[in-house]
Amino acid sequence: MKAVLMTAAGDPEVLQLQDIQNPGVRLGETELLVHLRAAGINPIDTKLRKRGTFYPDKMPAILGCDGAGVVEAVGAGVQKFRVGDEVYFCNGGLGAHQGNYAEYTTIDERFVARKPASVSFAEAAAAPLVLITAWEALYERGRLEPGERVLIHAGAGGVGHVAIQLAKLKGASVCTTVSTQEKADFVHKLGADHVIFYKQRDFVQAALDWTNGEGVDLAFDTVGSETLHKTFPAVRVYGDIVTILEPDANTVWKSARQRNLRIGLEFMLIPMLQGIVEAQQHQAEILEQCAKWIDAGKLQIQVSHTFSLEEAAKAHHLLETGSVTGKIILLVEDK
């Protein structure tokens, strides 16, 4: 089969399309062989490409956590799926298990969800990592409740644009930061109640004005660096803030302490990295629920650009510009 191999840590050109053995020749008892039709590209992919994977002794590596495709074969003990089922999932791509920049992959059936029937493979492959991240951040780390007010940073981004929709589905009011009018129009269509042009206005003051000086109940940081501690004053006393980035060493915690904020850290790859099976199964259940919302027209995934497998390096270059609205996808040729 054809796959994009990361031959070493470095710039996007280390991603090379090569022919390798199909992983289905050694299918496990509860594994599926999936003919991939699309793979999502996420910031974690570019970070691992630049610095090396979590498993540097297992090179070359195939990146890509997000995948969508068709079940081509099943292990003897598989119960939930059969050949021909369309599926989507977040699995592999961190250096240990093969990722999804490839024509085929294997995955335990416990970590798979049925693909939303109403969307393309590209849209499905764009969804898993960002859906799980936003769900866990808002619903589990942030304990979001109906009627609460939420500030979501970078609402037009991959995680941000689904976070807006999940917050609205919970019955919350949402304000979000964007950089352009085009992105403002986009997030309004997703349900955002208030848009803050952060390059033109102090987002803290804007959030305070929006909440009559009280501050939001929950802030969701998808940007990192200084954004985390700069957001503390925008959150009400005894409120919550969740970040998906590791707090910077220069983070100033004083205002968070003075407001008794509850700090949530969200890294959705932990179950995969640590082999926590129950948590991986829970993430598949999240995808099953989100598939129902997608098919009901309550949740949408924005695909901004698509590339072929052989254009993986070009796709990484685009993502690293930092100006993408929605998600970038690699399409796998259907043979």
Rank of each mutant, 00 (worst) to 15 (best):
Q289G: 11
A3I: 15
T30Y: 13
A122G: 14
K254P: 02
Q280W: 12
Q274K: 14
A124E: 07
E311I: 14
L5V: 15
D221R: 08
V14L: 04
T231K: 04
T180A: 07
R110L: 03
Q258V: 00
T30W: 13
V87M: 10
T306N: 04
A73E: 14
L228A: 02
H229T: 15
T227H: 06
A206F: 10
A76C: 08
G10W: 07
A315M: 05
K314D: 15
K292Q: 15
H188Y: 11
L144G: 02
A134Y: 06
I263P: 02
Q18D: 14
D193G: 00
L273D: 01
I196M: 03
L208I: 09
A76E: 12
P12F: 03
F203W: 03
S179I: 15
L144E: 00
V195N: 00
T106Q: 06
P12Q: 06
C65R: 10
V174P: 02
Q274A: 14
A219R: 06
M268V: 14
H229C: 08
L94H: 00
A279Q: 14
S304M: 03
I41L: 15
D193K: 00
A284M: 03
R110W: 03
V74R: 02
R149F: 11
I328F: 07
E226Q: 08
G84T: 11
F121M: 08
H229N: 12
D334F: 06
E145M: 08
L5S: 15
W293F: 15
K80T: 07
W293K: 14
L228M: 06
D221G: 10
R114E: 09
D85R: 04
Y101A: 09
P233V: 14
L94D: 00
G77W: 05
V178W: 04
G158N: 04
V130G: 00
W253L: 12
F267A: 13
P233G: 09
G24L: 12
V332M: 07
H188C: 09
F232Q: 07
S225R: 07
L228R: 07
S308V: 02
Q289D: 13
L17Y: 10
A184Y: 07
E182T: 15
G95H: 03
T211L: 03
T227V: 12
I107D: 00
V235I: 14
Y88D: 01
Y55F: 14
T133V: 06
A249T: 14
K189N: 12
V74Y: 01
G275I: 11
T306I: 05
G191P: 04
